[in-house]
């Protein structure tokens, strides 16, 4: 017999600790978004104003781990095919962990066809990159992705 099942109750100190941590982890409330710095909040307010942001149909594609913070490829897409009076006016990218939070704003028109864009950005540190879309009907969509920025070993 190679498998000895553990007794049902096994209150060793280690096991008790493991269970306690596991239960604590399961009961953690969803963490609120980290409070934004004044500069970041100002940048977000400048876009959203007093509107409510929903997650909506906004996707932000980023690497989970950036090989180099100098050049991080990103792509955004919001909603579907534009019509003359129903389209996405802009998508803004913000990097709250950068010295300047604003990164890039894409401005679309009905002649863009789609709210899809890609570029490459600089990230000073590991952070949640934010995308905010403004729609022609005044609605606002918002999403964020964490991007881990590693420090290379070679200074060369």
């Amino acid at each position: 017999m190679i498998h000895t099942p553990l007794p049902k109750a096994c209150f060793t100190r280690r096991r008790l600790l493991q269970q306690t941590v596991a239960v604590w982890a399961m009961t953690l409330p969803a963490l609120p978004l980290a409070a934004d710095s004044p500069a970041v909040q100002a940048a977000i307010d400048a876009i959203i104003g007093d509107r409510d942001a929903e997650s909506g149909e906004l996707s932000l594609t980023t690497p989970a781990i950036a090989e180099n913070g100098n050049t991080v490829p990103i792509a955004v897409a919001a909603g579907g095919r534009f019509t003359a009076d129903d389209y996405v006016e802009a998508i803004h990218i913000l990097a709250p962990g950068n010295p300047v939070p604003e990164v890039v704003s894409f401005h679309f028109t009905p002649r863009s066809g789609y709210a899809r864009a890609a570029t490459r950005i600089r990230l000073a540190e590991t952070q949640d990159v934010i995308a905010i879309a403004e729609l022609s009907d005044g609605r606002v969509w918002r999403t964020a992705n964490e991007v881990k920025v590693t420090i290379g070993g070679c200074g060369g």
Partner: peptide
Amino acid sequence: HPAVSANPYLAFYVV
């Protein structure tokens, strides 16, 4: 803004 990488690359759609 300054956080766009050197040698800026952009991709987008037009109709």
